[in-house]
Design a protein around this nucleic acid. Structure first.
Lengths: 207, 207
DNA sequence: TCAATTCGGAAATGATCGTTCCCAAATAAG
DNA sequence: CTTATTTGGGAACGATCATTTCCGAATTGA
């Protein structure tokens, strides 16, 4: 529909304006949801971390689930931006695959590794009985797999990856690999070996 | 110490005997903890699934955490038995690695796949802030990695795996791979591609 | 200036959580 | 047979949970 009919009117909706940035609040909620999970993250914890009163939270979001899903979407947005920026530096298909594995390997280390991946956390904690969460997770994982497959095919087109490589099964293997690294990172604070694993995995693109 | 001094006495402790088998109850608790996670699994759900009253639960276990840890240990015991049985059928080191990957691939399919792995669930949900859970997870994962490394070295000793393979980094890669497959299985009910992934991964043991 | 609307924040609400208590039943020891 | 001990089972408990309500403050539109 046409909303421009209100051009003569205010640029903002009536009522008192919100005093915080939704995305800033979500960035803080992401930390809580990542390291505590959905159920262990109480509204009390969330409002403290986000610097809001409970009432304000419920004016911005319908319920706890809505906070979580918004945090999930924000998490995907932020992480995808990091990944895209790294991929742009890739010289060819093979190099882009390497850089992509590197992004996930680095995220699995140290504090960020212990904090964990929100996609995986959602899959593991909610995937079995929350259809809405499972659908979001499934979409995210499918897109990541498709990206890996596309990068492998790009490498085969530019000659950096041999055509004998099965793009489909190799993409899925690498997808499993990066999720596995993220799982290991939850309880192994110093798996610097993650980079060795990436190096070894790249041999799958050799012949 | 010498407990045989009570040989003349009862074979059982005094008091009313327990009317259920702990392991049977734990097997049912495992299902609840796997598909709901630690926090979402309420005592009410657990007692219903285990067929016990709340009072009886708390006579057998100190608290909810103790139920969970006992279920975790039972889960490891059962899954290790399945794995050991399969490994005994292995012809050589390479074949044993293949069978081990197959056990995890199969577990990541269908209902069992959606139910999920309790080790991974514990790592993801509790790993970041529960030291006791993290320690158990870390031990389990370390042992699994060591087993993979030992199988690779066995293959190198019997000639089924070339010595050029780096047992250390390859074992860790395969460890990540099987955990990743289990994560994918939570939201992808029919990843029959898991077997293709295993087949592709075996190429890492070729040269 | 005056409704209408929305936000911030604290207090209140009902539900559910994990846990304990209580009593009848079952067993061992004396 | 009595006492001590442990279990089964249900009711009861306090704590915490997610959510709503309420009121003063801030803004828009008339």
């Amino acid at each position: 529909m046409d909303n421009s009919s209100s051009l003569r009117h205010a640029v903002r909706a009536p009522g008192r304006p919100r005093e915080f940035e939704i995305d800033d609040a979500l960035d803080k909620a992401i930390v809580v949801f990542c390291e505590r999970g959905y159920h262990a993250a109480s509204i009390s914890e969330l409002k403290d971390a986000m610097g809001l009163a409970a009432g304000s939270l419920y004016k911005a979001f319908k319920d706890k689930k809505a906070i979580f899903l918004a945090a999930f979407d924000r998490y995907k947005q932020v992480r995808n931006a990091v990944l895209d920026r790294e991929l742009q530096k890739g010289a060819d298909g093979r190099d882009k695959v390497l850089r992509m594995l590197g992004v996930y390997a680095e995220a699995s280390l140290g504090d960020m590794g212990q904090r964990g991946c929100l996609v995986i956390g959602t899959a593991v904690e909610l995937g079995a009985y929350d259809a809405e969460a499972a659908e979001r997770v499934h979409l995210s994982m499918s897109l990541t797999e498709e990206l890996l497959r596309a990068l492998i095919r790009e490498g085969q087109a530019d000659g950096s990856i041999p055509p004998s490589v099965n793009a489909q099964s190799t993409a899925r293997l690498l997808l499993s690999l990066i999720y596995g690294l993220r799982v290991l990172g939850k309880t192994q604070p110093e798996p610097e070996q993650a980079y060795c694993v990436v190096e070894t995995a790249m041999k799958l693109l050799d012949r």
